[in-house]
Nucleic acid binder design. Structure first.
Lengths: 70, 70
DNA sequence: ATGTGACTTGGAGTCCGTG
DNA sequence: TCACGGACTCCAAGTCACA
């Protein structure tokens, strides 16, 4: 299974669960809105520091973003 | 806790557990020897595709690399 | 067998927009 | 609200020589 796919799905899942738009979430994470969009569309391989920023903004443990949900 | 630190520690931990040198491990992961060195010394913020390569070479689940061990 | 500085280049990440 | 594109900037990727 591709980690980028798992990551993308999880970001989308947790983001919608807390009811944030891509835009609002991007701002909370300190990242760009088009970047979040690209991530969820699996268009980019993201770096670790931003992985942490995203996990922080989602208010979850970092490793959860890599656990495949089926 | 810094994710890069956790990641670095875990790479080192799992790598030594299976008894591989940085050099042998780098080759198995398809990465450069000095690159592995830099990662374990927390000198680089690495991207997701390489995280997966490393997890594959360590023969562990990807998320384990982000679980903090104390 | 590993740490480290320096280097080039491809892609991560930003910012403008449109439908 | 989001997908997607073009044009950037800058840092991670990948490699080298040397300690």
């Amino acid at each position: 299974m591709d980690i980028i796919k798992v990551f993308a799905n999880n970001v989308k899942k947790y983001r919608t669960e807390i009811g944030l738009s891509q835009e609002a979430f991007a701002e909370k994470a300190g990242l760009h809105r088009t970047y979040i969009s690209a991530i969820e569309r699996e268009k980019r391989s993201i770096a670790l520091d931003n992985v942490q920023k995203i996990a922080d903004a989602l208010e979850i443990e970092t490793y959860l973003l890599f656990v495949e949900v089926k």
